[in-house]
Amino acid sequence: MAKRNAIFPANRHALYEEHGYSAAIRSGDLLFVSGQVGSRPDGTSEPDFGRQVQLAFDNLQATLKAGGCTVDDIIDVTTFHTDPENQFGTIMAVKQQIFSEPPYPNWTAIGVNWLAGFDFEIKVIARIPSDA
């Protein structure tokens, strides 16, 4: 069995080390990105929800970059929300800045009651460009 090819962005190891997981795994031409949250570099949650969502997307973009991808390479998105009804407008405002024009990736949003101190999490699958 081939060893996993783990990908980590620069300066983002606090939560990965604390909880024992990789930021992303490269498999062939696919990049499977673990759930990204709005954490500060020390792993603590950003208390402002809008800023937390923006940080989650920033952390996602840093992980994609470390794997040779951009948001344009994303195929599939899954997001987790602790209060979807009240949070949706804030999330959509950030999402529309990131994914500003079609074709949009697949997207599944899931309401949950616990995210380890966070209120939003995003995980994706991206296709790694052939020149990466």
Rank of each mutant, 00 (worst) to 15 (best):
W107G: 05
Q54I: 05
I110H: 10
N86E: 13
Q61R: 14
T78Q: 15
G67F: 06
G67R: 01
T90N: 11
A66N: 04
L64D: 06
T63R: 06
I75S: 15
A93V: 01
C69P: 09
E101G: 14
F80R: 13
Q54N: 12
T63E: 05
I110T: 09
V77D: 03
Q96K: 12
E85P: 02
N106T: 12
T90H: 11
T108L: 01
Q54P: 10
V53C: 01
A62H: 10
E101W: 00
D72G: 15
V71T: 14
Y104N: 03
Q52E: 15
G89F: 03
T82I: 08
T79I: 07
V94R: 05
F57M: 09
T82H: 05
F57C: 04
L64M: 07
Q87D: 12
P102W: 00
T70R: 11
H81A: 09
T90G: 13
D76M: 03
E85Y: 14
I74L: 05
W107H: 00
Q96W: 04
D76S: 14
D76N: 15
P102F: 09
A62V: 01
F88M: 14
K65G: 07
P84T: 12
G89E: 01
M92K: 14
Q61S: 13
I98E: 02
I74W: 07
A56H: 02
K95E: 08
Y104L: 15
D73Y: 07
L60K: 11
T63Q: 09
K95F: 09
G68W: 05
N59P: 02
D72P: 08
T70I: 03
D83W: 02
V94C: 04
H81F: 01
E85L: 11
D76G: 08
Q87N: 14
L60F: 08
D76Y: 05
A66H: 03
L64S: 04
T90A: 11
E101C: 10
V77G: 07
E101T: 12
F57V: 07
V94G: 03
T79L: 04
Q97V: 06
F80T: 11
D83A: 13
S100G: 01
D83G: 12
D83I: 07
Q61C: 12
Q87H: 09
D73S: 10
T70Y: 06
Y104K: 08
I91D: 10
E101K: 13
D83C: 09
T78R: 13
V71C: 14
D73L: 03
M92W: 07
N86L: 14
S100L: 03
T108P: 00
T70S: 15
A93T: 04
Q52M: 05
V53Q: 04
P102H: 07
T70D: 12
N59K: 06
T82N: 06
